[in-house]
């Protein structure tokens, strides 16, 4: 455990400068390889996974209940493989939900938390949402991405997600497609996946949620997307809003069949 923290700190120091340095590209690549090697025997996300498992099993909230009866789509209490099949439609809420949204539903219904209490500080490193998502996602490692497109609402969200991916607005005319629809491109030195290309989409989506060395935190997919939306100079969308879920329906669909390696590790 201590070892992991140490490695994370070391990696952050190493990489923090290297990745953004205006200088030798090969050097940056070399640094990244070095920290990948260092981390071979441990991803700091494991700490989050442990914290998440504890949160899952601890009786909490006004109803003093655990989350162990939470239905993530594969039946109450089934965690294995659940993340690989999200977003999906849930009859009890009448919504297509992603992992963040569904966990919040369970915190509300099973534990009695308000939406505000369940989501407070969700974007801060070490948040409960971050820990719970990491725990659940780790239990889909080795599973192929297979978000269902069976219910009409799932098909609708997938279609809307595609439209949103290409939706341009704002003072820089950006949409997701500006940065993620051309193959083999970079912003500065950062490689950009194209979600129009299956192998690219898979290579990206199989690695989430991911420990981000530069942030010293695990980022969930909503955290990632809301940051890209910030870069687009749009206002911040509501956490667990349907627009953010629809975009994930689209990304997961583009990446379907990719075998999950969650949790990943990133710059």
């Amino acid at each position: 455990m201590k070892h992991l923290v140490h490695v994370a700190a070391l990696a952050a120091g190493l990489l923090g400068g290297a990745a953004v340095a205006v200088g030798d590209e090969d050097h940056a690549a070399g640094e990244i390889r070095k920290y990948r090697e260092m981390l071979e025997d441990g991803n700091p996300a494991e700490l989050m996974e442990m914290k998440g498992e504890e949160l899952w099993r601890t009786a909490r909230g006004p109803k003093s209940a655990t989350l162990e009866a939470c239905d993530l789509g594969r039946g109450p209490g089934v965690v294995d493989g659940a993340y690989a099949q999200l977003p999906r439609y849930f009859a009890d809420t009448g919504r297509v939900q992603d992992i963040e949204s569904r966990l919040v539903t369970c915190m509300q219904t099973l534990q009695g938390f308000s939406f505000e209490d369940a989501t407070r500080g969700w974007y801060k490193p070490g948040s409960e949402v971050e820990a719970l998502v990491t725990f659940v996602a780790t239990h889909s490692k080795g599973q192929p991405i297979a978000a269902p497109v069976e219910h009409p609402e799932e098909a609708r969200m997938l279609a809307a997600g595609g439209d949103l991916f290409f939706r341009r607005s704002g003072p820089l005319d950006f949409s997701c497609a500006t940065c993620h629809s051309l193959e083999g491109r970079r912003i500065r030195l950062q490689d950009l996946p194209s979600f129009q290309v299956a192998k690219d989409a898979q290579a990206s989506m199989i690695t989430w949620p991911a420990y981000r060395v530069s942030q010293s935190a695990v980022w969930t997919m909503e955290r990632r997307l809301i940051d890209c939306i910030r870069q687009m100079r749009w206002p911040e969308p509501a956490f667990t809003s349907d627009a953010v879920i629809a975009i994930q329906s689209y990304l997961q669909h583009q990446a379907r069949g990719g075998v999950l390696q969650s949790p990943g590790i990133k710059r």
Binding site: R167, S169, P235, A238, D242, A243
Partner: peptide, 26 residues
């Protein structure tokens, strides 16, 4: 209104009028 635009309107319900004008409206 298209599905996508309806989702945008909901997701950004907290945006100010000015943000709608300069950042979200197309």
């Amino acid at each position: 209104e298209s599905d996508a635009e309806a989702l945008v309107r909901k997701a950004f319900a907290g945006a100010t009028e000015d943000e709608w004008r300069t950042r979200l409206a197309q």
